[in-house]
Amino acid sequence: KKYKIKVYVKDKKTKKWKKIKEIEVDTKEEALEAIKKLPPNYEVKIVP
């Protein structure tokens, strides 16, 4: 079972969220580790 991490950042001009990358991992633990490495201003969604 794979997890997709969708990473969004808020556009300063439009104030809208835009997706900047998608990370695919195998476990939820890996997903949480990957999220920890991202800057705090990123919004993250984990999709099972």
Rank of each mutant, 00 (worst) to 15 (best):
K10P: 04
P40L: 09
K19V: 11
E24A: 07
L38Y: 12
K21G: 15
E33K: 08
K15S: 08
V9N: 04
I5G: 00
W17L: 07
K28Q: 12
I23L: 09
L38W: 11
N41A: 08
V9G: 04
T14P: 01
D26L: 09
Y8H: 01
K12I: 10
K21M: 15
V25H: 03
K6V: 15
E22Y: 03
E30I: 05
W17I: 04
K28C: 15
K13G: 06
L32K: 07
E22L: 04
K19I: 10
K19T: 03
L32C: 13
V47H: 08
Y3C: 06
K4G: 02
P48D: 13
K19R: 04
K18S: 05
D26M: 09
E22M: 04
T14N: 09
D26A: 10
Y3D: 00
T27Q: 02
P48I: 15
E24P: 05
I23W: 15
K19C: 12
K37V: 07
K2V: 07
I5Q: 00
E33I: 10
K19L: 15
E29Q: 12
K13D: 08
K16E: 06
K4H: 07
V25A: 07
V44Q: 02
L32Y: 14
V7C: 09
K37E: 10
P39V: 06
D11W: 04
D26T: 08
P39G: 11
P40I: 08
K21E: 12
P39W: 13
A34P: 00
K15H: 12
A34V: 15
K13C: 10
L32S: 06
L38D: 00
E22I: 06
K13T: 07
K28R: 14
I20T: 03
K36M: 09
K12Y: 09
L32W: 14
K16V: 05
T14E: 04
D26H: 10
E33T: 09
I20Q: 03
V47Q: 08
V44Y: 13
I23Y: 13
K1S: 12
K1V: 14
E30V: 03
K37I: 08
T14C: 04
E29K: 08
P39F: 14
P40G: 12
I46T: 03
P39L: 12
I23M: 11
T27A: 03
E29L: 11
K15P: 03
L38G: 01
V25T: 06
V44K: 03
W17E: 00
I20W: 08
E30F: 02
P40A: 11
E33A: 10
A31Y: 08
P40S: 12
E29R: 10
W17K: 04
K1P: 14
A34D: 01
V7Y: 05
K12L: 13
K18C: 06
E24V: 14
P39H: 07
K21N: 13
P40C: 10
K15W: 02
N41R: 14
K15E: 05
E29P: 03
I5V: 12
V9A: 10
K45S: 06
E43H: 15
V25W: 03
D26E: 11
V7H: 00
K37T: 10
I35D: 00
K2E: 04
N41Q: 10
E30K: 07
Y42N: 05
L38S: 02
K37C: 07
K12E: 14
T14F: 04
K37Y: 07
K15N: 12
K2P: 06
L32V: 08
I23V: 08
K16F: 05
E24N: 09
W17T: 02
E29A: 10
K37W: 05
V47D: 05
E29W: 11
K12M: 10
K15I: 01
K1M: 13
A31R: 01
I20A: 03
V47C: 10
E24C: 13
E24F: 14
Y42R: 09
K6W: 13
I5T: 00
A31L: 13
I20C: 04
K18L: 11
W17F: 06
A31G: 04
K1W: 07
K15Q: 11
W17R: 04
E22T: 09
V25D: 00
K6I: 15
K16M: 08
I35R: 04
Y42G: 03
A31K: 01
E24S: 12
K2D: 03
K4D: 01
K10R: 14
V47M: 11
K45H: 14
E33W: 02
E43S: 15
T14V: 02
E33Q: 12
E29Y: 07
T27P: 01
L32E: 11
A31C: 11
K4A: 05
K1G: 13
I23N: 01
I5P: 00
K13Y: 11
V25K: 03
K16D: 03
D11I: 06
I46N: 01
Y3M: 06
V44H: 08
N41Y: 15
L38I: 11
T14M: 05
K15D: 09
I46L: 10
E24I: 13
E43M: 15
A31P: 00
T14I: 03
K10D: 01
A31E: 01
K13H: 11
K10C: 10
V9K: 15
V9S: 06
K19E: 06
T14W: 04
